[in-house]
Design a protein around this nucleic acid. Structure first.
Lengths: 114, 114
DNA sequence: TATCTTGTTCGACATTCTACGAACATCGAA
DNA sequence: TTCGATGTTCGTAGAATGTCGAACAAGATA
């Protein structure tokens, strides 16, 4: 659980971002983070095992969609909206809007909300 | 080579479209078609075998990104821009713009151009 | 130090994807 | 009818993906 590396804004690739956002669970995670607030790992609720959730968060992180910060044993995740908007203008908003309309990733949410 | 089915505009799903546009060859095909003109199969140039190209065009077609029309033994492909824009506003433009900037799918082109 | 919490990593497995060449189907042309 | 051109489909192979539970590592806490 050491500090994990992230791609810089310049290293983001369209194909990686598109692939990262091609999965319902990951789209759901992006939606949960879309208000820009940082969320603790523990707040996230998804219908998958924790190892699978870890995997999905890694895919998002490696693609540069999210940034993960360590703090003790806890992790905090935040959407890299500014970086994404700079490299791929309009893409994130288009995906989030479409996902909202379609309900993609609705199974993903935050603890204490239903 | 009978008439193939296409999803209606309402049947398009975000996940399918995102997945379809997560591959460099398919992004390249979308770019080639992005001027809205219908292109003949034979015009398309991609660095893959023809069976693989057929596969990629099927993925795009099944996702509703393109429409394929038969005419004799030939096929013609066109981007379903209006349908995509209606269902997922801004998505296609964002992807095409990003792809242009990054040169994704540059290996794909039209016959007689280099 | 011993234990609990938190998240990652490690097999394992089934599924899907990309890719190829070969065989096939269909239509047009000779 | 025979041949050629055009795409699709099939069989195959290798790589990647999504998923899980179990084992592990690192801090926090008792």
């Amino acid at each position: 659980m050491r500090q994990v590396p992230h791609p810089t804004a310049d290293e983001l690739t369209l194909v990686a971002v598109m692939a990262a956002l091609s999965d319902p669970v990951r789209i759901g995670l992006a939606r949960v983070l879309s208000d820009g607030r940082e969320r603790g790992w523990g707040e996230l609720r998804a219908p998958v095992a924790k190892s699978t959730l870890s995997h999905h968060l890694k895919v998002l992180r490696d693609a540069g969609v999210t940034r993960t910060r360590q703090e003790g044993t806890r992790c905090y995740v935040v959407l890299r909206r500014a970086d994404l908007d700079r490299r791929f203008p309009g893409l994130l908003d288009a995906v989030l809007t479409a996902a909202d309309g379609e309900g993609v990733g609705d199974q993903v949410g935050l603890a204490g909300r239903r």
